[in-house]
Design a protein around this nucleic acid. Sequence first.
DNA 1: TGAAAAAAAACGAACGTTCGTTACTATTGT
DNA 2: ACAATAGTAACGAACGTTCGTTTTTTTTCA
Lengths: 203, 203
Amino acid sequence: MPQPSSLTKGERTRQTIIDAAHTLIVEQGYAGTSMRQISERAGLALGGIYNHFPNKEAIFVEVIISKHPFHQVLPLLQAAPGDTVEEFVRNAAKRMIAELGRRPDFIKLIFVELVEFEGRDLPRMFQVIFPQVLPLVQRFQSHEGELRPIDPFILFRAFLGLFISYYMTELLLAGIPAALKPENSFDSFVEIFLHGVIAAKDN
Amino acid sequence: MPQPSSLTKGERTRQTIIDAAHTLIVEQGYAGTSMRQISERAGLALGGIYNHFPNKEAIFVEVIISKHPFHQVLPLLQAAPGDTVEEFVRNAAKRMIAELGRRPDFIKLIFVELVEFEGRDLPRMFQVIFPQVLPLVQRFQSHEGELRPIDPFILFRAFLGLFISYYMTELLLAGIPAALKPENSFDSFVEIFLHGVIAAKDN
DNA sequence: TGAAAAAAAACGAACGTTCGTTACTATTGT
DNA sequence: ACAATAGTAACGAACGTTCGTTTTTTTTCA
């Protein structure tokens, strides 16, 4: 019975494999995940996988490319509303952290990439991701007058680093006594970044 | 009679194993490193390792505890000179990035920890590391008057995040066309952080 | 001190298991 | 129909670990 789907069966199975591999690689890393685990989670026989991918590494290259956090986060950031740079930064940061919170495995995929694919596919990843970053940099550039004279690409790096590390430490602190964790960390991070980049008002 | 000043043979071998495992785990991750690789690099027969460690995981727990970057970085930061907060931040950041540059494997060990030991030994790690962080937070606290009213622990998180991510992106950008990389990134990062945290001078 | 006894450490083969991959056959989708 | 997709079984290699044994280091006691 042909399902009312524009996708062919093979394409759907291929996506199932990618999804299964994705959740496994996030939980266990690349070397820690076996083809048998993938086939099991995908509801497929071991041999069947090789109709869709030539080998294990090809699966994970596809996982990292298609599931890369930047695909979801960057457009979200770029579309953040805000006429002033302050509004823009606040909204962009809020969006990013909300998205990271919704998908906690985003960050871990980057780590797996760094740990197990460094020097192999990392340059390729960046060729895919980097062009998407540029429009966001321009978004900073458009507020040039309101900002300190800092290279907009550095602005972007600082922005990303600050809020990714906010999210990371927030994760780490999950196992720490709550008494030590201050409230409103998020707002403080926004404050630090805003004051760090906004030009002093001369009036 | 055991010499109190010199290490016993077993202790020396144990350290050799830890060192070998450390370099391998940084290069390949935990699951990607085999006991045979460790034994080979340590110049030891495969079976000999088990005179010093009960199993593979015990080795890596020891690696992560004894080689954790914070052991080296935190004291360095705490001892950073500077009477004003500006001098302190600048020197501390400089020291940290210099140390990270000298030992590029520091960061990767944290990634391996996060990817492959998450939820297992991470709480224990933090029990070891966290007490070392507190004196550094106090270092920020001592400059309270010069700073915006931000929780000092958040200050510390922002500081670490900003400069670790400076270092990370600097690494990533190694594969990117040099034309896109602005000069003096480091100083810009320091500027952003300083302006972000220093109270506005009222004069 | 120095030989004997004990303990620790190193060895290398072998264990059972799991790994990624392949070959081949059966089934399915279009 | 026939290509695409699924399943089954098997391959050799590598995995972590254990084994009995030998070698080296440390301790004991004259």
